[in-house]
Simulated scan of single mutants.
Amino acid sequence: MASAPQTQPQLPLFYNDLVPLNSKEHRGFHSRTVDSAPWLAKQHAIPLTADEFIQAQRHFPIVFSSGDNPLPLALMGLNEGVNTFLDDNGKITEPVYMPAYIRRYPWLLAKLTNDTDELSLCYDPTCEAIGDFKEGEPLFDDKGEASEATKGVLDFCEKFEQSGARTKQFMEELTSRELLMEGEVSIQAGGDDAKPFLYRGFQMVNQEKLNELDDETILTFHKNGILALCQAHLMSLDVMRSIFQRQLDQGKGPKADAKT
């Protein structure tokens, strides 16, 4: 969930390039609203912060990525390249909670050099929402100072980084106590004789291990909110079948054994 330095060859999901925002080069730039997100149309798994679990669990299954450093993910579709909440042009088809990771784009706080911990506000220049055009909100005022819109973006990005730090702490608790296990969901489509579709390749909280925690740990988890996050995650898994049905209704159902 942490922001990637500009010098790293692999940029975060959605980002094609990063340019530091500065008043000298971008004084006349504006930020405008766009009515589609083609960069999101084919993304089925979106990074999610722990702060969003309660809101997101009503809309998406929340799972954890595989590997040694798992991250929470909101599944907007169950198969690669399928987002059931956007059409092929990237337009939202119905009201839905949008994860902060999506709302942050095309902005990002990133290190300009590897020898500093200071983060600078950057943006993806390939995004059509930011540019040297007249419409939209100005990024700087006549004096070259950051506009209110830019200050708002900076505040949002700073809060996102703080939320990312809390998410990291949450994940460290889960992994250090070995509360994650390999997930598997079987969904039956068609008649009783139809072969079920198996979804693997993700991790989930081991509810049995969670229930076996000692009373002191359970009380601590309750007080610091970890227990509520685990419960929101486990409850959200029921939404997998709803997402699967959305895929079928949209003609985007899986053709064979599938993985998230």
Rank of each mutant, 00 (worst) to 15 (best):
W107S: 01
W107Q: 07
L108C: 09
L109G: 02
A110V: 13
A110M: 09
K111L: 10
L112Q: 12
D115T: 15
T116V: 05
T116N: 12
T116E: 15
T116F: 03
T116C: 08
E118I: 13
S120A: 15
C122H: 01
C122R: 00
Y123C: 05
D124C: 03
D124E: 05
D124P: 04
P125S: 00
T126D: 11
A129K: 04
G131H: 02
D132T: 11
F133S: 06
F133R: 03
F133A: 06
K134P: 00
K134H: 08
E135S: 09
E135D: 14
E137F: 03
E137N: 13
L139Y: 04
F140A: 02
F140T: 01
F140P: 02
K143P: 00
G144Y: 15
E145C: 10
A146C: 10
A146P: 11
E148T: 04
A149L: 12
A149F: 14
T150W: 09
T150M: 15
K151F: 10
K151R: 15
K151C: 08
G152A: 03
G152D: 01
V153G: 01
D155R: 14
D155P: 00
F156C: 02
E158T: 09
K159Q: 09
K159T: 01
K159A: 06
K159L: 06
F160N: 02
F160M: 09
E161M: 13
Q162W: 00
Q162T: 04
S163I: 04
S163P: 01
G164Q: 11
G164R: 05
A165L: 10
A165Q: 12
R166P: 00
T167R: 02
T167L: 07
T167V: 03
T167S: 09
K168R: 13
K168A: 14
Q169I: 09
Q169K: 14
F170R: 04
F170H: 06
F170W: 08
M171I: 11
M171Y: 04
M171P: 01
L174A: 12
T175F: 13
T175V: 15
T175D: 14
S176Q: 13
R177D: 07
E178G: 08
L179A: 06
E182L: 11
E182G: 08
G183V: 10
G183R: 13
E184N: 10
E184M: 11
E184Q: 12
V185W: 10
V185P: 01
S186V: 00
Q188K: 15
A189L: 11
G190F: 05
D192V: 08
D192T: 08
D193W: 06
A194K: 06
K195A: 14
P196N: 05
P196Q: 10
P196C: 07
F197E: 10
L198D: 00
L198P: 00
L198K: 07
Y199W: 10
R200V: 05
R200P: 00
G201D: 15
G201W: 05
Q203A: 14
M204R: 12
V205W: 02
N206E: 07
L210Q: 03
D214M: 02
E216Y: 09
T217N: 08
I218V: 15
L219P: 00
L219H: 07
L219K: 14
F221T: 05
F221Q: 06
F221V: 06
